[in-house]
Each structure stands twice: as structure tokens, then as C-alpha cells.
Design a protein around this nucleic acid. Structure first.
Lengths: 121, 121
DNA sequence: TTAATAGTTGAACGGTTGTTCAACTGTTTG
DNA sequence: CAAACAGTTGAACAACCGTTCAACTATTAA
């Protein structure tokens, strides 16, 4: 059973480790940077969004064609496109009844390329 | 109200679009590749895991020091380290009572670097 | 062996998130 | 105008996921 005791920060009595903690702590990126970074990776961390990005990377596509290419409903695709729009990962323009989506950025292509190299060892 | 009717795949009657869908569909990466890729990005899509990676990128650290650096419990850190271990993103070795974690891969550093460039416009 | 420290683990809880459903807006055509 | 097609949206639901908690293992020192 757990004893009733005040919980001190662990390792707090180890002077050597404490220096390490200080040194490493100061060299970490700002919290906001880390959050922005993880938010960005979260966008790519969904297979549906990745497949959308792959598809419109080949050529600009309307929502309808993306949906059919991926065997998904327009609604599901549209929800994801909204997320990608709000993060400026895709561009869009209206053409008559259609809304055409395309990749907004070359960086994203590069990052995906690098990641593909990684998972292929 | 919704009408009762058979739902056909949308855009199915548009021959021009159908060609597009065929062409793009064939050029997409294999499903398994996409899943592996999204799984990889999922790993980076969490600020805790990113901060762990940043920390042990500076220098190899024991779990205790990581926990204190990030102001988290050892348990929470250990759970995330397990995920990173299972994905071969970190290495570890035991040193007496401590288990020292370090970055396993240079690719990851590169990808994070690229992503940082991206979010900084 | 016992106590203390370091680390791991499984279950559970709560928040997040992707898809579905139904309804809506916007555009073109008859 | 109305009908048809393209796309968007909010609510709801289920599945997923990160942290906490309590207990456990492992190593070292007394």
C-alpha cells in the first residue's frame, strides 16, 4: 500500500542530475513552438488526411473526386478538408459547382518525402 | 427530410471525372505505406513525446531526469517512452538503477527540423 | 535481508477526434 | 421558378489516446 507522505519532485536530492535537468530544460524549445509543432504533425498523423494530400498532390481535385478516389463520403472528406484549410495545408478555388483543392505548400511534400525515406529504413 | 432512395457512388455518371479518379487512384501509395506513415506522424503529433525527443536529443537522460525536466510523473514519461521504444525512435541502456534513453535515429531530427522551418514560415 | 530509489505496467477515467447522419447553402440547368 | 448536383456544417456516437493511480519489478546500499 501507498504510504502517506509528501511527494517531492523526484531526483531532487541528486545534485549531479539537478544540473543536468537545468541544462537540458533551458535548451528546450518554447512551449508554444512545441505545441505548434505537435499540432502540425497531428495533421499528418491521420491516414485519411494523408491520402487526401497525396491525391491532390498528383493534381488538383474537386471534393467529389477526392471522395470517390478514397471511397469515402463527401461529408467525411469535407470535414478533413476544413481542417487542412484552417492549417493552410491546402488551397481551394470554386469552379462552377465544384470546389477544387490543391496542395498549398512544398514544405509538406518534402516532409512527407523524408518520412517515407525513414519508414523504408 | 431525407428521401428514401438508393445511394449510388457520387460523381459516378461523370465520365471525365471518372478518368481522373482512376488516374489519381492508381498513383496513390499502398494502403500499408499510408498507415505506416500516419502512424509515424502520430508519434510526433504529441507535445509530450516531442519534448522527450528534444530533451534526449541534447543528451542521453534517465527517466527520472526526463520527468523532472518536463515536470511530469515518471509513470507518464515511461508510458510515452514505451511507445517511442516500440517504434524504434529511441534507444535505451541500463546503468545501475537508471535507464538511459537517447535518440535512435538521425532521420527524426531532420524531419523535426524541416517541420520547424515550415511552421516558422 | 530489508529499505530506498528507479522504472514499468495494467486498469480506469476523461478528453479528443474521425465518421455518420441529416439538414443546410451555393451553383447551374431546365 | 424548381430540380439536381456539389459542398459544408453541427450534433451525436464510438473509438482512440494520454494521464493518473496503485501496484509491481529491478538494482543498489545498509
Amino acid at each position: 500500500m501507498e504510504k502517506n507522505k509528501i511527494k517531492l519532485p523526484e531526483c531532487s536530492l541528486h545534485e549531479i542530475h539537478h544540473d543536468t535537468v537545468m541544462r537540458v530544460g533551458e535548451s528546450l524549445p518554447a512551449d508554444e513552438t512545441t505545441y505548434d509543432l505537435s499540432d502540425f504533425f497531428k495533421l499528418l498523423g491521420d491516414s485519411t488526411r494523408l491520402r487526401i494530400l497525396f491525391a491532390i498532390d498528383r493534381e488538383p481535385l474537386c471534393v467529389c473526386d477526392i471522395a470517390e478516389t478514397l471511397s469515402m463520403t463527401k461529408s467525411a472528406v469535407s470535414h478533413q478538408l476544413k481542417v487542412l484549410r484552417q492549417s493552410d495545408l491546402v488551397r481551394y478555388r470554386r469552379e462552377g459547382k465544384n470546389v477544387i483543392y490543391s496542395l498549398a505548400d512544398d514544405h509538406v511534400r518534402d516532409i512527407i518525402e523524408k518520412a517515407l525515406e525513414h519508414i523504408n529504413e
